[in-house]
Design a binder for these strands. Structure first.
Length: 302
DNA sequence: GGTTTAATAGCGTAAGTATC
DNA sequence: GATACTTACGCTATTAAACC
């Protein structure tokens, strides 16, 4: 039997996981809680946009909740608030930025994180009058174009071309950033977010297979399977709602990641028994069988 | 522009060490 | 002897750089 893409099941999984992720949690982990906004910033203001933009730029290999907590403290302290002002990031020496980012543990990797932070800020200062919305306007508010430009836009630094948006340009962070700007900062002008495919990494793949949204017999590379996974989520979310707006494929990235990271990765690879089963939000949709994802190779018998 | 490679942080685990 | 703490190491996930 070749693989099947079960959209009915996909819709059930999408509803269930999105709901768990936004209202309670998945295996004890949630995304950025709704109240995680500095007390001294108005929702949707330029300050709020820069807060989200700079913070998510260093959301790499670390605990998300503690990152946002540290960033809020940094924003609410008058002495470190300048770190969210692109013009002041441009004027401040890197050593001081390193020191001030360290005050509330905003930078577990002090040199590297400060470097990313300053560069992203300075790009918005130099190219977009310190306002990311000017970048979006210049891209016709088209999310597909914005995502492309995040990857390709460069500047010259010490005679060499360097990316304008380090880390913010990574495949995983880009869609997350735009989604947060729309959902949390209320940036409704952003168009075509629904056209951005879900990033398929090992977690998204594992959770998609373990919930049986894609099942059957398959042996091959993850790349070969990825197109089916992207398509499965494009179609599964069709017609569903997410907090009074249509659900889109990238809404599923974090819920699926969390399910896999804290749940499905405990599965027995051959039979599919899972030590996290009894406490799993998705146990009613979990299927047994072989799911082996090794490097880029997938071995599926479900 | 896309693909492969090298580098690196975080995590879990196991072994070693200290303390009660 | 049991428990708590420390260190080392290998594995995974992810990025930038190098390469075609």
């Amino acid at each position: 039997m070749p693989i099947v893409i079960d959209l009915e099941r996909g819709k059930k999984v999408a509803k269930l996981l999105y709901n768990s992720f936004t209202t309670t949690d998945i295996h004890g982990r949630t995304g950025m809680p709704r109240d995680m906004v500095p007390s001294s910033v108005a929702k949707g203001s330029l300050g709020h946009i820069l807060f989200i933009t700079l913070t998510i730029s260093i959301n790499y290999k670390r605990d998300a909740s503690s990152l946002w907590e540290s960033s809020i403290k940094t924003f609410d302290d008058p002495e470190t608030k300048y770190l969210f002002d692109p013009k002041l990031l441009h004027e401040t020496p890197l050593e001081k930025i390193v020191e001030d980012m360290h005050r509330y543990n905003l930078s577990p990797r002090p040199e590297k994180d400060a470097d990313i932070w300053q560069r992203v800020g300075v790009t918005f200062y130099e190219k977009w009058s310190s306002d990311p919305r000017n970048f979006f306007k210049n891209s016709n508010w088209d999310s597909s174009l914005i995502v492309k430009r995040l990857r390709t836009d460069t500047h010259t630094e010490k005679g060499e071309t360097a990316p304008d948006y380090p880390y913010l340009r990574s495949p995983k962070i880009r869609p997350l950033w735009l989604k947060m700007l729309r959902d949390d900062a209320g940036m409704v002008e952003l168009r075509n977010l629904e056209a951005i495919p879900i990033l398929v990494d090992v977690h998204v793949a594992r959770a998609t297979l373990a919930t049986g949204v894609i099942r059957g017999q398959f042996k091959g590379t993850l790349d070969e399977l990825s197109e089916d996974i992207r398509e499965a989520w494009f179609q599964s979310v069709e017609g569903l709602n997410a907090n009074e707006r249509p659900m889109i494929a990238i809404d599923m990235y974090q819920p699926l990641s969390h399910l896999s990271m804290h749940g499905c990765s405990n599965r027995d690879e051959i039979i599919g028994n899972c030590t996290a089963f009894n406490n799993c939000e998705a146990r009613d949709l979990c299927i047994k069988g072989k799911i082996k994802i090794d490097k880029n190779f997938v071995d599926l018998e479900t």
